[in-house]
Design a protein around this nucleic acid. Structure first.
Length: 782
DNA sequence: CCCCTGTTATTTTTT
DNA sequence: ATAACAGGGG
């Protein structure tokens, strides 16, 4: 107990010890929020509250893991449920699927999968899409769902034209989803909320079970999430939420800032705790953040302060273009690392869009600095990965039509658009899944015997696979890669470098499955694996163990902190983004986004913008962000910012290159080269390659997945330890050499641990399998 | 039916 | 830049 309450401030202790009744913790950035939350859980456990009565809802899996780790230190081995809203709902639905018309093996569709269903729904609903697009309709439906509006409840409401169209598609869309026994991301929340609303007994049971609920990042909850939390804290209103209105950055996803602003009105006798002291940043950084956020009108006023020692001023810097920006930052990092001031893992780079991260791959490779691009979902969006996952989805849920349509002709089986169309027509007519329709293909007269046969063959192969669906996921994967000949398919398709990665990605997926299997032991299941994969989030990919520079979007940066932070591309049309210039509310959200970025920094912060940037394949001129003039520039270190005077902030269109830049922008002599980061007086060495010169942009090779660049899937799904497998450097596609047979290429890898086996085709034509543990195989040099 | 090629739209942010 | 899509030859 002493360990739990010791070292807490008055305010923190008050938050930790208030366990009965509602509580709102307004926690500014870096105010020790995670600490309060974890200590509070430990305190509750110490008070004798059973772990299974405590539920902590976090925003990312990563945050849940972090919390679990910390609680384990204070109170080892207690099964407190921690996870994201989506996972919480997914598990709730798994148990009570029939209440919302699903079966327990339902599939969770990602955005692109649900778009397929949506397109089909648009056809079924027979609406005209001349003035709208599937994306728009999808966005509107998503908004309906986040506001808990069902197709029925929308009827008779006065809707705009677009909303009217969307509401008709909505009904068809939900029906298609139900037939497919599938849900989209929004449905996880929506179904859970509806289930709780419509089943009072169940609600009461769950309210009792989840007697103590904590919600993190409460400012980012939407109405559906609000309703779920609300209905689980009626009889037992022991709800403690933490959040910061100034860090609300998910309004576009339906997050409703009034959930937190109005918390006191929703619950009676709310204890409000304000955590305003910042333990993270220097006063210089905090001052910049505070000055910026004061330009927002819709907020709870708060007084941020810190007792931390002073540090270097915040730097604001202009670059000529994105290449120079990336290269200079990489050079700065290399220099600081070289001097032993920092480690690569101390540095983070934040940007508004994922596409802005690309140039940094080249830059960091050129300076030999290890880095990670934190983009967790990217791996699972790849074609080959989605293909293989689709087979698994279909095995888990035979109703999953998106999966069926995806795999029916992959690898090519001579089943094309026409056949699929006829199958779909039959399926729609009898309201059955495509796989069922395929079983009745003989009844589809529009298909000749020849194509009926092809379909039947597929169904037979499926059934054979399905007979083994209970195998451990990695084994099932191996079997399906064999039976479908998917790996060979990739290999025969491989005609350039990029295609080699594909085979590696499939192998990567197998290791992800192996990893899942190892970690979940008895509870491992196909649907568990698929659920886990479906709910990975971008920030889950962030790995603090690797000691690498982290590059990520501002959204993914939430909740993290780094000694050195670079926020790049603080430019008009990007930040604030041009698509959020319609309303003050959206503009303020953009400002909060920058605020989040700034407040991640502990000691050193640089904001930068460029004059010109590669955009959608062509160069376009850039202007500084309007947010920059809101900063306290008199206290900052301005480097090469001749254009940053208080005029010239049009939308960016009226900006052009004649606008009074110094003609001779000589990098060697300018302060770019002498900037000193407040660390010492040494002169920063410029990189060899000058921006725009030959050295940059010619680096063709991307880092291979899993080496330096993108985090691998296995790593991503990994929570704890994982012993390395013998021969794990061998992959399908690897070039290997053998003392007797010479060089060759690995065709397939199979088996686990000591039995890991490689099948190799040697250049002399000979094919042979080896158990890697014993074989005299080496990676080929070249 | 498959595959190749040229055209078009598309991009904010994410579970 | 890139992916999704359409249309035509094989």
């Amino acid at each position: 107990m002493d360990a739990i309450l010791r070292d807490l401030t008055e305010a923190q202790r008050s938050a930790v010890t208030h366990i009965h009744g509602p509580q709102l913790i307004l926690a500014g950035p870096g105010s020790g929020k995670t600490r309060v939350v974890t200590h509070r859980i430990a305190f509750m456990l110490a008070q004798g509250i059973p772990a299974w009565n405590i539920t902590a809802l976090t925003f990312t899996n990563k945050a849940a893991d972090e919390m679990r780790k910390r609680i384990d230190r204070l109170a080892p081995g207690q099964p407190v449920w921690m996870g994201t809203f989506h996972r919480f709902c997914a598990q709730l639905l798994r148990r009570h699927a029939s209440l919302v018309g699903l079966k327990e093996n339902y599939s969770i569709l990602d955005t692109s999968d649900s778009k397929q269903i949506l397109k089909r729904a648009i056809e079924v609903a027979k609406v005209s899409t001349s003035h709208t697009s599937p994306e728009k309709i999808g966005a509107t439906i998503s908004r309906f769902k986040n506001r808990l509006a069902l197709p029925e409840t929308l009827e008779g409401q006065s809707l705009g034209a677009n909303e009217h169209v969307a509401s008709r598609v909505y009904a068809a869309y939900q029906q298609q989803l139900l037939i497919a026994n599938a849900v989209d991301f929004d449905d996880l929340l929506l179904h859970a909320a509806c289930m709780l609303r419509d089943n009072p007994d169940l609600r009461a049971d769950l309210d009792l079970k989840h007697r103590y609920i904590m919600v993190d990042e409460y400012q980012d909850t939407n109405l559906a999430q609000y309703a779920i939390v609300r209905s689980l804290s009626i009889d037992n209103p022991n709800l403690s939420v933490t959040g910061d209105p100034d860090q609300s950055i998910y309004g576009w996803r339906g997050a409703d800032i009034s959930n937190i602003l109005g918390f006191e009105k929703d619950y009676s006798d709310v204890q409000i705790v304000r955590l305003e002291e910042n333990y993270r940043s220097t006063p210089e950084i905090l001052h910049v953040a505070d000055t910026l956020i004061r330009n927002n009108s819709r907020r709870k006023d708060k007084h941020l302060f810190t007792n931390n020692p002073s540090g270097p001023p915040v730097t604001l810097r202009m670059y000529l273009d994105g290449y120079q920006e990336a290269d200079d930052i990489a050079a700065q990092v290399a220099m600081n690392v070289g001097r032993g001031e920092i480690r690569p893992g101390d540095v983070a780079i934040f940007c508004r869009m994922n596409s802005l991260t690309r140039v940094f791959e080249h830059a960091f490779n050129a300076h030999a600095i290890p880095y990670q691009i934190v983009n967790g979902t990217e791996f699972y969006q790849r074609k080959e990965v989605k293909d293989v996952l689709a087979y698994l989805h279909l095995l888990n849920n035979p109703g999953n039509d998106v999966a069926f349509a995806r795999v029916i002709n992959v690898p090519t089986r001579g089943i094309g658009a026409k056949t699929l169309k006829d199958l779909t027509a039959h399926a729609d007519r009898y309201r059955m899944p495509l796989l069922e329709a395929a079983r009745e293909v003989h009844a589809i007269k529009s298909l000749s015997a020849r194509y009926q046969k092809k379909v039947t063959d597929f169904v037979e192969m499926y059934d054979e696979l399905a007979a083994h669906a209970m195998l451990p996921v990695p084994d099932l994967l191996g079997l399906l890669l064999d039976m479908t000949k998917y790996r060979e398919y990739l290999q025969t398709m491989a005609d350039d470098e990029a295609d080699n990665d594909r085979v590696a990605n499939v192998d990567e997926l197998v290791s992800a499955a192996t990893d899942y299997d190892d970690r979940h032991q008895d509870e491992a299941s196909l649907e568990g694996f698929l659920e886990q994969v479906a709910l990975v989030s971008d920030s889950d990919a962030w790995d603090d163990a690797g000691d690498r520079v982290s590059i990520m979007t501002l959204h993914a940066a939430k909740g993290l902190e780094f000694p050195h932070v670079y926020v790049i591309a603080v430019e008009a049309r990007l930040l604030p983004h041009e698509r959020s210039m319609n309303s003050d509310a959206e503009l303020e959200e953009e400002r909060r986004l920058l605020f989040v970025g700034i407040t991640r920094a502990e000691r050193y912060l640089q904001l930068s913008y460029t004059r010109q940037r590669m955009f959608r394949g062509s160069h376009s001129p850039m202007a500084p962000s309007s947010f920059l003039v809101e900063l306290p520039r008199d206290t900052m270190n301005l480097v090469n910012t001749p254009d940053l005077v208080d005029q010239c902030y049009g939308g960016g269109d009226d900006y052009n290159q004649d606008m009074g830049y110094p003609d001779s922008w000589d990098i060697e002599d300018e302060s770019l080269a002498t900037e000193k980061l407040g660390l010492d007086d040494e002169i920063c060495q410029l990189p060899d390659e000058q921006p725009g010169g030959d050295g940059i942009g010619v680096v063709k090779e991307r880092p291979t997945l899993g080496i330096v660049g993108i985090k691998t899937a296995a790593e991503m799904l990994q929570r704890r330890d994982s012993g390395s497998l013998p021969g794990e450097t061998f992959r399908a596609g690897s070039r290997v050499s053998h003392p007797k047979y010479g060089e060759g290429q690995i065709l397939t890898i199979s088996g686990r641990a000591d039995k890991r086996t490689a099948k190799v085709r040697f250049d002399i034509g000979h094919i042979q399998s080896f158990i890697l543990k014993f074989a005299p195989l080496e990676m080929a040099k070249s």
